[in-house]
Amino acid sequence: MNEYNFAYLDEQTKRMIRRAILKGLAVPGYQVPFASREMPMPYGWGTGGVQVSAATLTPGDTLKVIDQGADDTTNAVSIRKFFENTAGVETTEETEKATVIQTRHRIPEAKLRDDQIIVYQVPIPEPLRFLEPRETETRKMHSLEEYGLMHVKLYEDISRHGAISTAYAYPVKVSGRYVMDPSPIPKFDNPKLEMDAIQLFGAGREQRIYAVPPHTKVVSLDFEDYPFEATKANHPCDLCGANDSYLDEVIMDDAGNRMFVCSDTDFCRSRRAAGYQGRMAREEMQ
């Protein structure tokens, strides 16, 4: 571990990233450009999130890393290992105990506190990108608050599918000013974006950092006659019986059997430890 500076990045780089984070916090939802570094992992694996985490971590922090809500998938395990090796910080799978949480595609079910920081991995930070490919133009649209185009996307959804079918990376307006891509979290998580913890977003390939400070107003965009709805599979968790958590659908066999389980593994585990049981809880134990 002595070969690396604390948390892999050198101190100057971390200062540069911290400046971008502070600017992002000062202007909620604004994408701050930063000099993203090459990281020892491919783009798309969370290079942005890792850099933000590295600049945020202190030796006394406890880190939790989740990927699609789970602590035990490749991305989560390898990033957790990465910081164990390069920073030597404590790691945990329990949301409660973590002080810094790096996440891909989910917000934990447990309510986050004001002494926690959540870091999102962002693939494409620009919410307007798929409708307007020119960066010069999207920057101008942000600076002049011309967000009509965002609603064109939602209009297309309704005209094609009869409802707003955007299910993840659902655009939000932060603090009444900037329209922001909340990273590819399911829209079920959108209401949680107004939280007590600090939220930081890092996009490594696109070299952007943005942030939502605690207790900031975050509104999901919608139409008057098609209001925003936070959706999930209409089913309880088959392991812990929770009715209010976001679920993954798992195909069990070729006969059409399937089960729904909490995507937040820590939430599901702690509920089962407390004695809650879902439909298939017994089978799993055998």
Binding site: E146, G148, H151, Y155, F223, E224, Y226
Partner: peptide
Amino acid sequence: RLMAVGERHY
């Protein structure tokens, strides 16, 4: 254009 000038009723 309608959405650009603030129309929000589908």
